[in-house]
Each structure stands twice: as C-alpha cells, then as structure tokens.
C-alpha cells in the first residue's frame, strides 16, 4: 500500500510544519518573521484538516480550512496594522 494512502503520512508532514512554525516564533526577533511562522502553523493544521476530510470522506474538513483561511486573513490585516503603527512610533521593530 503506497504511503500516500495513509493519513498518518500527511499528519507527520503537518506535525513537522507546525513544529518549524513554533520554532520560528520562539527563535526569531523580527515580528514580521514571527507572523510568518504563525501562518506556517495555521497552514500545517489546514493540511491535516484536508487529509482528514479526504480520508474520512467528510466535507467538515473543507469548511474548517475555509474558516481558518478567513481568520488568518483577518489576523494578517490587524496584525500588520499593529506592526506598522509600532514602527511609526519607534522606528525599529525588533521584539527584544
């Protein structure tokens, strides 16, 4: 049985991407890169939702991915506005 027929393979890729995103939030100082790492984590979870939707033959996973996508877009808009207004008053944005 090929490995791409197991849901566990997709979940392991998703776990690796999530871990890399969590590591990025921990180690980087630039808030923009920390933001990108949060996007990485959201997308890792999206991948596992899509894998479950496919293997459980259920449409719920697609709906969750759609909602996560919308929330991520809203989060990017508000977060970037906050970062831009911090930059305006401080002229450097490193978090440490």
């Amino acid at each position: 049985m090929p490995i791409s027929d197991h849901v566990t393979a997709y979940l392991i890729v998703s776990a690796l991407l999530f871990t890399i995103g969590a590591m990025g939030v921990l180690v980087r100082r630039n808030p923009l890169v920390m933001f990108m790492s949060i996007e990485l984590m959201l997308n890792a979870v999206n991948l596992s939702f899509m894998a479950f939707a496919h293997f459980l033959n259920s449409v719920d996973g697609w709906m969750f991915v759609f909602l996560v996508l919308t929330v991520a877009a809203a989060e990017v808009v508000v977060g970037l506005a906050i970062i831009v207004s911090i930059f305006r008053s401080r002229h450097e944005i490193d978090v440490d």
Binding site: S4, Y10, V13, L32, F35, M36, N43, N46, L47, M50, A51, A53, H54, W62, V65, F66, L69, A72, A73, V76, V77, L80
Partner: peptide, 26 residues
Amino acid sequence: FFLTLESIFVATIQVLIYAGAVMVLF
C-alpha cells in the same frame, strides 16, 4: 497537497487568496 487530496476548489482558493492576496499584502 490539496490537489493530491482531490479538492480542487480549496487548492484554488489557497493559491488565489492565501498565496495571492494575503501574501501580497504581507
């Protein structure tokens, strides 16, 4: 990945909205 999981529509909105619009703003 989404295409290989047989969901063309979600793959399309991933490219159009996420990799397109949100990332251009970013």
